[in-house]
Design a protein around this nucleic acid. Structure first.
Length: 436
RNA sequence: UCCUCAGUAGCUCAAUGGCAGAGCAUCCGGCUGUUAACCGGAGGGUUGUAGGUUCGAGUCCUACCUGAGGAGCCA
């Protein structure tokens, strides 16, 4: 019999249908059984009464175990006590495979155990909600760029040399030479932007940093737009419209999932452009005031990069993402364009998400002068020969250009209101975790 | 790399230096509207590893292992 998905159940009320899925949980009351069935599209409670089914079917419903694969025939109808909720009157149940004792019980579990069983944990309601939001965010990301004249130009995962120092890169054997897993598609984006004008790349990114916090993965997904002839202000406007689009799409299409996650939706409803802009100089003042008030332990001095507690403090002053721009050039990457009015500052921007979710976007205007880049490469002790192709971009029609990168997992964690990014990707890769 | 915390049944946890326990899961029995269902019964242990203190260590001490949170670094 043709399979009906639980998400489509309301179109089949009163009809006999077949659901192919798994037993999520089971309760019984003597000769009346309640079987929660999931099929990937949703979960529905099946009701089976001994007097209404064959002995074989009743026996099957009694012995079926949690997460056994099952094919069920029955008729959906409204829940007697809950309007808008559907139930299935079970007429027949066939066990495809009787599951062994399932390790994830309906009681609570610790993180370590659940991470070890990640391949099974993905079957839970909560993980479904998170990964559906992730899916929606990714769709919104693609739609935003695709509908705004950007060309998807993906960049390589294997790269020949370190761009920002080898310590943060995973080294792999590449036949007879060494290669590194990409930590950013940006340098390649600059080449494709010079070819196509407006481009983006979207793929996995690898960082070998020994970071062990709720915001870090060693493998994560990053989307990076790059726009030829764009200035810092253009890219800040792009970033706020981009985030605004993502948030409104999630609110529009994934409200049910946010409710499963008990997300405070009112906080997300405030996220609409324009976002506050805060120059680094003013951020320093804000942090120093925060220290005077006793909200921050140490006094922040001009010249340093913002630490996590600093970012959290700044973002707590706003109910929207805040765009901190024009950091000291010394704490930023070699390819940043200096501010012509203040050459000690870089034309860069970090977008800090609200509620302490930290930096979700980093970007800025790229240096367009060949001489400047050559000097910077020397100052940073980087191998010039590795950048010959990159320097070509400054020899052949160099233009001002800018872009940014957004970490998908941090965005998912923020919109879902999660404690940790590890639940935002199906199989997280972290320091000390490579399995499953 | 550094700081803090934790490790006891398959899972989540309890046990003043003095008989190693409960709930869930599993198995057996009961229950016709359950919702992490409930009620009764049963089985289930090298207390992370190695050493030490003590009449006696899950508990105190030392080292190590594993994990979690944070710092630095970052998206």
């Amino acid at each position: 019999m043709k399979q009906t998905y639980i998400s489509e159940i309301s179109k089949h009320l009163g009809q006999e249908i077949t659901i192919k899925g798994w037993l999520y949980n089971k309760r019984s009351s003597g000769k009346l059984g309640f079987l929660e069935i999931r099929d990937g599209s949703g979960i529905i409670q099946g009701v089976v009464s001994k007097k209404d089914v064959s002995d074989e079917t009743w026996e099957s419903t009694e012995k079926v175990t949690q997460e056994s694969s099952v094919i069920i025939t029955g008729a959906p109808r409204e829940h007697p006590k809950k309007p808008g909720v559907y139930e299935l009157d079970i007429k027949d149940l066939r066990i495809v495979q009787l599951a062994h004792e399932y390790p994830i019980t309906p009681k609570e579990h610790g993180v370590e155990f659940l991470m070890d069983k990640r391949h099974l944990w993905l079957r839970s309601r909560r993980q479904h909600a998170i990964l559906r939001v992730r899916h929606e965010i990714i769709r919104a990301v693609r739609d935003f760029f695709d509908n705004n004249g950007f060309i998807l130009c993906d960049t390589p995962v294997f790269t020949p040399a370190a761009c920002e120092g080898t310590t943060t890169l995973f080294e792999v054997g590449y036949f007879d030479e060494k290669a590194y897993l990409t930590q950013s598609g940006q340098l390649y984006n600059e080449a494709t932007a010079a070819a196509f004008g407006k481009v983006y790349c979207f793929g996995p990114t690898f960082r070998a940093e020994k970071s062990k916090t709720r915001r870090h993965l060693t493998e994560f997904w990053m989307v990076e737009p790059e726009v030829a002839y764009a200035k810092l202000d253009d890219v800040m406007e792009l970033a706020e419209n981009f985030i605004g689009h993502i948030v409104s799409r999630v609110l529009e299409s994934r409200r049910e999932e946010l409710n499963v996650l008990e997300r405070d939706i009112s906080k997300l409803e405030k996220i609409a452009p324009p976002f506050p802009r805060l120059q680094y100089d003013d951020a320093v003042k804000m942090l120093q005031e925060g220290h005077t008030k006793g909200a921050l332990e140490s006094r922040f001095e001009w010249g340093g990069d913002l630490g996590s507690p600093d970012e959290t403090y700044i973002s707590s002053q706003y109910d929207k993402p805040v765009m901190v721009h024009r950091y000291p050039a010394a704490v930023k990457a070699f390819y940043m364009e200096p501010d012509p009015e203040r050459p000690d500052l870089a034309l860069c921007v970090d977008v800090l998400a609200p509620e302490g979710y930290g930096e979700i976007i980093g970007g800025g205007e790229r240096a367009s002068s060949l001489e400047l880049l050559l000097n910077r490469i020397q100052e940073h002790g980087l191998p010039e020969e590795a950048f010959d192709w990159y320097l070509d971009l400054r020899k052949y029609g160099s233009v001002p250009h800018a872009g940014f990168g957004m970490g998908i997992e941090r965005c998912v964690a923020w919109l879902c209101g999660l404690e940790h990014v590890r639940e935002t990707i199906p199989f997280p890769r972290m320091l000390y975790r490579l399995k499953p």
